[in-house]
Write a protein that binds this DNA or RNA. Structure first.
Lengths: 219, 219
DNA sequence: GCTATAGTCAACAATGCTGTCTATTACCTC
DNA sequence: GAGGTAATAGACAGCATTGTTGACTATAGC
C-alpha cells in the first residue's frame, strides 16, 4: 500500500536538527513571548516536520523549557565564553569596556535579549540564570576592587544596567529604522550610561540634604 | 420555539461593561503578553458573554489596541492625574520624591507596568505614549532647572530610569514572596537609584581618563 | 401602554493547535 | 545485506479560539 508520498530525510544529524528547532523556537519566543510559543509554528519555521519536533521535545512545555535554558547558555557563551582565559590574567575588566561590550551584545543579539527579558518577566522567575550570577559576581568584584564605589548595592545596580542595556536596543529598533540611526542610538546609550556612572545626574550642591542622607549609608 | 434559555441582561450600562472587559484584558495582557490575548479568555474573566465582547470590540486586534491605549491613559492618570494642579504652583518636583513616586507606582501597579513593558517590547513601538512624553518633558525641565546636570541625555536617562523602575517590581515579585520582603526590595531600589544619581558608581580618581573624556562633551 | 433599539446572549461553522499513532523512506554501522 | 536510527507524511480526536448570526431582554421615546 504505497499510497503515501516518499518521506525524504533532509538531515541525518539529530543534533543539528535539535539546534535548528531551538533556533526557530528562539525566534518565535523573541517575537511573541513564551506564552504563545506553538510547536506547530516552530516546526514550520524550522522547516521540520511537526512529528520530528515532538520527537525531540515530547511536549510544548518541554520545548519551552529547553529553549529558555538554551537561551541562558547561549547568552553566557556569547558574553563570557570567548574570553574565559582573559579573566584569569586580567584582574578587573575596565568599566567602559565592560559597558561597551554589554551594549554591543544587546545591539547585536536582540533576539537573545528579548528572550531573556521575557524570561525575567515570566512570573516563574529564573533565579538559576548562569549569566545573571556571573554578571553580579563580576560587578561585586569591581565594587570591591577600588575602581567602583564600595557602597553600591550590587544586585540592584546589576539589574538596572542589565535591564536597560538589554531593553534599549528593542526600544530603539522600534523607533529607528536604519542601521546608521541604530548605531547612533547605541552610542548615545553608552555615553549616557558612562556619564551616569561617572557623575550621577543630580547637582550635589543643590541637594545637600540628599547628599548627607545617602552618604556613608546613614539614615 | 422557546428552546433557548433566557438571555438575561446582567448589566444595563454599556460603559461599565466596556470597562470590565478592558480591565480583564489588562489582566490577561499583563500575564501573557499581547500576542496571546484571546477574546474568549478576556470575556470569561470579565464574566461577560463572548458575543458582548465582540460587540464592543469587533475583532481581536481592536480589543488589543483599545487595551493598549487604555493602559497608556490609565498610567498617565494614575501617575500625573491627581496632581495636575500641583505642577502649576511647584516649579520642579524634587528628585527624591519623583523617584519614590515612580517606584511606588510600579510596585503598586505591576499589571500596568507589565502591560507597558510588553508594549515597549512589541515590535510595533508606541511612540505616541502620553506618559512617556510627559516623563521625558519633566526630566528635561529638571535638567535645565539647575538641580539636575545639564549634560544629561534626557531621553536615554528617562528610558533607563523608567525601564528599570517598572521592571524591578516584576523581577522582585518573582523572587520575593512576602509583602515585607517586597517592601524591602523596593527600598533597596530607591536607595540604590538615589545613590547612583547622586554619586555615580565609579571612583573618579581611578578613572581620570574617563572623567576627562566625558567632561564637557569632549570626544 | 407600545414599539424601536441598544445591549446581551447562545449556538454555529471554520480554523488551528496539541498530542498520538502508523506507515514509509533514507542513512549509518556492523 | 540486516538492523537500528532519524526523519517525513498523513490522519485522528479533543479542545480552544475566531467571527457571525439569530434570538432574547431591558430601557427609552412616542
Amino acid at each position: 500500500m504505497a499510497t503515501s508520498r516518499p518521506a525524504r530525510r533532509n538531515n541525518t544529524d539529530p543534533e543539528s536538527t535539535r539546534r535548528e528547532i531551538l533556533q526557530a523556537a528562539l525566534e518565535v519566543l523573541a517575537q511573541d513571548g513564551p506564552e504563545s510559543l506553538s510547536v506547530a509554528e516552530v516546526a514550520r519555521r524550522a522547516g521540520v516536520n511537526r512529528g520530528t519536533a515532538y520527537q525531540h521535545f515530547p511536549t510544548r512545555e518541554d520545548l519551552a523549557h529547553a529553549t529558555a535554558s538554551w537561551v541562558s547558555d547561549r547568552i553566557y557563551q556569547e558574553f563570557y565564553g570567548d574570553f574565559e582565559q582573559l579573566s584569569e590574567t586580567n584582574e578587573v575588566y575596565p568599566a567602559d569596556l565592560a559597558l561597551a561590550r554589554l551594549s554591543d551584545f544587546a545591539m547585536n543579539n536582540p533576539e537573545l535579549s528579548r528572550a531573556w527579558l521575557f524570561d525575567v518577566m515570566s512570573t516563574q522567575g529564573t533565579v538559576t540564570d548562569k549569566f545573571w550570577k556571573r554578571y553580579v559576581e563580576e560587578l561585586g568584584e569591581f565594587a570591591r576592587s577600588g575602581y567602583g564605589r564600595e557602597d553600591i548595592d550590587v544586585e540592584v545596580f546589576a539589574f538596572i544596567t542589565l535591564a536597560s542595556a538589554l531593553l534599549w536596543p528593542i526600544w530603539v529598533g522600534a523607533h529607528a529604522k536604519s542601521t546608521k540611526a541604530r548605531d547612533k542610538m547605541q552610542q548615545r546609550f553608552v555615553d549616557e550610561m558612562m556619564r551616569l556612572v561617572l557623575f550621577g545626574s543630580l547637582v550635589p550642591e543643590r541637594h545637600a540634604n540628599l547628599v548627607k542622607r545617602f552618604s556613608k549609608g546613614g539614615k
